[in-house]
């Protein structure tokens, strides 16, 4: 078992109002799965992904990655957990406008400081060709279309071969055709390279591609399906 979430709760405190965004969430993800969270807007998908990805802190329960509980870790340790284990893809791409495409993609490897620049360059070129963006290395993100930007984001998430890629509504900002091609790309990588994906969506077309689906309503898992 790669990831296991046990009775996770999350409450937002905003001044005097409290809002429980996640209630008793239990789920698990196996290596190589292509898992999706589905649910209407405001159901808690982003919150759940943020908690799993250590971008936010849950309130109670546990999140086990390879059997290690992430909930008890310190802030600095969490940064290392993210660096070594997770790749993120955001709805709004979140590329760095001041860096070139290649520099954006190489960033996770630079952070890990394990390889020489030559090795990194080689990997970046390979990765960019995989996502169909060869020849774009020296362009800036803002010169690219939304679909292309999201492909860069996929490349960036994948380059360090993370244990788990977390994608929060990766297609929500794209038209359906471009969105489909991005999901296609993710699926391909999942099948061919065994990358584990965990993503949220409210797009039924994307849900169909998932190998495992959790339906979330009002912060609770209402149903789960496996294909």
């Amino acid at each position: 078992m790669l990831l296991e979430v046990k009775s996770l709760n999350k409450t937002y405190h905003t001044g005097i109002v409290e809002f429980t965004a996640l209630k008793n969430i239990n789920l698990s993800v196996e290596k190589g799965e292509f898992t999706a969270f589905a649910g209407p807007s405001g159901s808690g998908k982003t919150t759940l992904l943020n908690c799993i990805g250590c971008l936010d802190r849950g309130e109670s329960g546990s999140i086990l990655l390879d059997g290690v509980d992430l909930m008890t870790k310190k802030t600095v340790e969490l940064a290392h957990v993210r660096k070594e284990n997770f790749g993120f893809i955001f709805q709004t791409y979140n590329l760095f406008p001041v860096l070139t495409i290649a520099e954006n993609v190489e960033m996770p490897l630079k952070l890990l400081q394990k390889e020489s620049q030559e090795e990194i360059n080689e990997k970046v070129m390979k990765m960019l060709s995989k996502v169909g963006l060869s020849g774009y290395e020296n362009r800036r993100p803002l010169e690219l279309s939304g679909g292309q930007q999201q492909r860069v984001a996929v490349a960036r998430a994948l380059i360090k071969k993370p244990k788990l890629i977390l994608a929060d509504e990766p297609t929500a900002n794209l038209d359906s055709k471009t969105g489909e091609s991005v999901v296609e790309l993710m699926k391909e990588l999942n099948v061919n390279e065994g990358v584990t994906f965990l993503f949220s969506t409210h797009d039924s077309m994307v849900m169909k591609r998932a190998s495992k689906l959790y339906e979330i309503h009002d912060g609770q898992i209402k149903a789960s399906r496996k294909k």
């Binding site: 290392h80 979140n94 760095f96």
Partner: peptide
Amino acid sequence: GTLKALGFTE
């Protein structure tokens, strides 16, 4: 936020 997600420490 993105940099933090990528694993940059504070």
